[in-house]
Simulated assay, not measured.
Amino acid sequence: MRTRLSLAAAAVGALVGALAPMASASATGPDVPSGLFTSPSSGADCGTSAPYTTIDNTDISLRGTFSDPAGGVLSAHFKIWPTGYGTGADVADTTISVVSGSVGTLVVPRSVITQLLATDGITGNGTFSWTARIEHGSLASDWSAECHFVFDGVRPTPPSAVSPQFPDGSNGWPANTGQARTPGTFTLSSGGVSDVVAYAYSTGWDPTVRTVTTTAGASVDVTLTPPSSGSWTLTVYTLDAGGNRSDSFIYRFYANA
């Protein structure tokens, strides 16, 4: 028997009884849910075909439009599970109330997402499938086509930075360092985190955060020019494919006059 997990559920327009007239289920039954989508977005067509969109370590909303020709208050039935599994306790099986013709929303906390993965022995990242159907009285629609997304529950480790022109000054002013108003090359590295897709950086003389993209966590070079002599900092963090952000790394260096 599949375990029903406790999920935070919200249905747009799902106030029952007083807000919608009672109606009997139509003879043909309710329609298959339409307009299914995930928030954050899982891409075109709700991720029905690979490659699937990666979503970061956050709560995830499952949404769709639920209708029956007879109108009234319906039950929107959602199921979500790690793709390739879904045979028991690794299925979140939840029903919410929704007024016919409106959008129903089921919020799946990230704690539930990670619990589903852990049930199947998966840590960190995992692909999910979900589907929905409409139930009205004794009748039910067919299940919708399956939606998919990849959940990335792991933040990248902090990056690093080095510069041959402006060496590390964390232990004080180096004997040999570059001059102010002279460009230097700074190499940003992800520490081997293969799903890093971008570095974001700013400097002590310019707080504007700039982003440079990368592939598979490869190192990148940026050129920076300290405007005057003295102590300066370069602050860097990384973003992975799911949008998870690492802690910042601060590189301190000095420029000669």
Rank of each mutant, 00 (worst) to 15 (best):
A140R: 12
S100M: 01
K79C: 09
V91P: 07
Q115L: 14
G153A: 14
V162E: 15
L117M: 15
G126Y: 03
Q165A: 13
L74P: 13
V150R: 15
N125A: 10
S163G: 07
T127P: 06
I80D: 08
A132H: 01
T105L: 13
V91N: 08
V162I: 14
A145N: 14
S138V: 13
V91Q: 08
N125R: 13
I80S: 12
A70C: 03
P159E: 05
T105P: 07
D90V: 01
T123I: 01
D120E: 15
D93S: 13
S129H: 11
H148K: 08
S170Q: 11
G137C: 03
V99C: 10
Y85F: 08
T131V: 10
T83C: 04
I122R: 09
A161N: 11
G72K: 02
I113P: 04
T94L: 02
A70Y: 04
P109Y: 12
G121A: 07
I122Y: 03
G121Y: 01
N125G: 06
G88K: 08
A118L: 13
H136R: 06
S100N: 05
H136A: 02
T83Y: 09
G169K: 12
W130K: 09
A89I: 01
T105R: 15
T119K: 08
K79Y: 02
D152L: 04
V98S: 01
L117S: 10
T83P: 05
T65E: 06
D168F: 06
D142Q: 15
A89C: 04
G71W: 00
V91S: 06
A76C: 09
G84K: 07
S170N: 13
W130H: 13
T127G: 11
S75V: 10
G86W: 03
P164C: 09
T114L: 03
V162F: 10
K79M: 10
G71K: 01
L74K: 00
F66I: 01
Q115H: 14
P156D: 04
G121P: 04
S129V: 01
S100P: 08
T123P: 00
G104L: 00
S160K: 12
T127R: 11
F66P: 12
D90P: 06
N125W: 00
G121M: 04
G101R: 11
G84W: 02
G84P: 09
E135L: 09
F66E: 09
